[in-house]
Amino acid sequence: MIVLSVVFTVESSRVEAFRAAVLGQAAQSLANEPGCLRFDVATDPEDETRFHLYEVYTDEKAVEAHRATGYFADFRGTVDPWTKGRELQTWTLIGPEAIDPPPSARE
């Protein structure tokens, strides 16, 4: 399983708009992509302009499918002008979820 960890820093005047956009992106990904198993959004309790996305995909094909969606392109087009920084890290999940994926990942 592939884990994407993305940290965004956004313009302070765009925090609420970014929050709405990223929560919409997460909801669409979970609803429409069988290979997207998890899409959590967190905020930094000490800096409201920092958002952390934690996404889990079944494999690299699922990540590619995610990046190919129209809503991913729309999200990036909308939030990129508001973004002061973005850090992406890719990980391989080795915990229990990777050994015994949830039933939805086995279908």
Rank of each mutant, 00 (worst) to 15 (best):
P103I: 14
P101M: 04
P102A: 14
A27C: 05
K84G: 12
E33M: 09
C36H: 05
Q25E: 13
A21D: 01
P103F: 15
V22M: 04
Q28M: 12
T92V: 07
F72I: 03
A27H: 08
F75D: 10
E16G: 14
S12D: 15
R76Y: 10
L53V: 11
A26V: 13
T69Y: 05
G77K: 11
A17S: 15
V56F: 01
F8Y: 14
L53C: 10
S12C: 14
Y71R: 02
I2L: 14
A73T: 10
P81K: 03
A73K: 10
E60T: 11
Q28D: 12
R106Q: 07
L30R: 15
Q25R: 04
W82V: 14
V6S: 04
A31P: 09
F39W: 01
D80V: 06
T83P: 03
G24C: 08
T43H: 13
R67Y: 12
R106V: 01
V10T: 06
T69V: 04
H52R: 10
P103Y: 08
V63Q: 02
A27F: 04
R19W: 03
H52I: 09
P45T: 04
Y54F: 14
P96S: 09
R67Q: 11
V63Y: 08
P34S: 12
E11Q: 13
H52L: 15
V10Y: 12
K61F: 04
V63I: 07
E97V: 11
Q25D: 08
A17L: 11
F51M: 05
V6G: 05
L93H: 12
K61C: 03
V79L: 08
A73M: 07
V41F: 02
K84R: 15
L88S: 00
P103W: 12
D44E: 08
F75W: 15
P96L: 08
T83S: 05
Q28F: 03
E48W: 02
V22E: 11
E16N: 12
A21H: 00
R76S: 03
A26P: 10
E87K: 04
A42K: 04
T92A: 07
E33Y: 00
S13A: 15
A31W: 02
D74C: 00
A68W: 07
Y54W: 14
R86S: 10
Q28T: 11
G77I: 00
E16R: 13
R19L: 13
L88A: 10
P103Q: 12
A65E: 07
E97N: 05
D44Q: 07
S13Q: 09
V10N: 10
P102K: 07
E64A: 15
F18M: 03
P102H: 10
